[in-house]
Amino acid sequence: MSVAHLPSTRIYWSSTLRVTTITEAMTCNRFEEIKRFVHFNDNTKQQNRDEPGYDKLFKIRPFLEKVRERYLLVPKEEHLAVDEQIIPTKARSTLKQYNPKKPHKWGYKVFVLSGVSGFSYDFDFFSGPTNLQPYQPDLGASSNVVVKLTESVPRNQNYKVFFDNWFTGLPLLVYLSKEGILPLGTVRKNRVPDCEFPKESMMKKKGRGTIMERVARVDGVDVSVVSWYDNKIVTTVSTYVGSRPKEYRNIQQLYGRC
């Protein structure tokens, strides 16, 4: 039904627009009966809202965990990214979020670990503070999302993880590096204190493509902060790559962009 959209459920069993894949599986009455009584969890075990450990997704938590189990069996790509997405909905729900920067502004917010192919290897529905394992460090609300979603990424096997400035913080990069994961992310200037760069007006005078780099050692890990001027300044931070080598830019100038 998610592939072949029709305006009403019963139309899938109609004589004119019937979808044989569905009609051969079960009758319409049987489908509606299952949909009416479907349950994934025991409501008597649900905690009250004011009790610690209350889960807004309690009623479908077993279903979500079964889906995650299947996702985690898929071998991951070398280059991964952590980001958020919105599942659009018009339903009334306390889980529904508003994000004006998304194409669909109202919906359920989901944090996703994806590869360059676009396949999602893990996910976490936003329903409040991220629940970490006892052995995982608390690095703040945004960085904890990356900590949780990268738990299944193999260690010390050259896996690279990218994320945007909402997630990025120096403690997160240090943690991932010590765990054997190679991180890179855009960063806000206030999250790299004592790292001075020229003002945007000065870099603008030098022209597009101007690069400034600062390297520091944080808790035994080398961290590279690169400020690059394009249409505006973009600042990235990483523990495995910096502004070198610059020869690639010369190749682009000779042969054009790919």
Rank of each mutant, 00 (worst) to 15 (best):
Q136N: 07
Q136L: 07
Q136T: 04
Q136P: 00
P137D: 10
P137Y: 07
P137E: 14
P137M: 08
D138C: 04
L139T: 09
L139N: 00
A141C: 11
S142H: 12
S142Y: 15
S142V: 04
S142P: 06
S143I: 09
S143N: 01
S143Q: 03
S143P: 06
N144P: 09
N144T: 05
V145G: 10
V146L: 07
V146Y: 05
V147S: 11
V147M: 12
V147N: 11
V147C: 12
V147Y: 12
K148A: 15
K148C: 08
L149Q: 14
L149E: 13
L149K: 02
T150W: 14
T150H: 10
T150F: 09
E151C: 09
E151Y: 11
E151W: 11
S152V: 14
V153R: 13
V153N: 06
V153T: 14
V153W: 11
V153S: 15
P154L: 03
P154Q: 07
P154I: 04
R155M: 09
R155A: 13
R155F: 07
R155G: 07
N156Y: 15
N156G: 14
N156I: 14
N156V: 11
Q157W: 11
Q157L: 15
Q157P: 12
N158G: 13
N158I: 10
N158T: 13
N158W: 14
Y159P: 05
Y159G: 08
K160Y: 12
K160L: 02
K160E: 00
V161C: 08
V161G: 05
V161E: 02
V161Q: 08
V161L: 09
F162G: 10
F162P: 03
F162A: 11
F163W: 10
F163A: 01
D164K: 01
D164M: 00
D164P: 00
D164Q: 05
N165M: 03
N165G: 08
W166Y: 14
W166T: 06
W166H: 10
W166I: 06
T168W: 04
G169P: 08
L170R: 08
P171V: 07
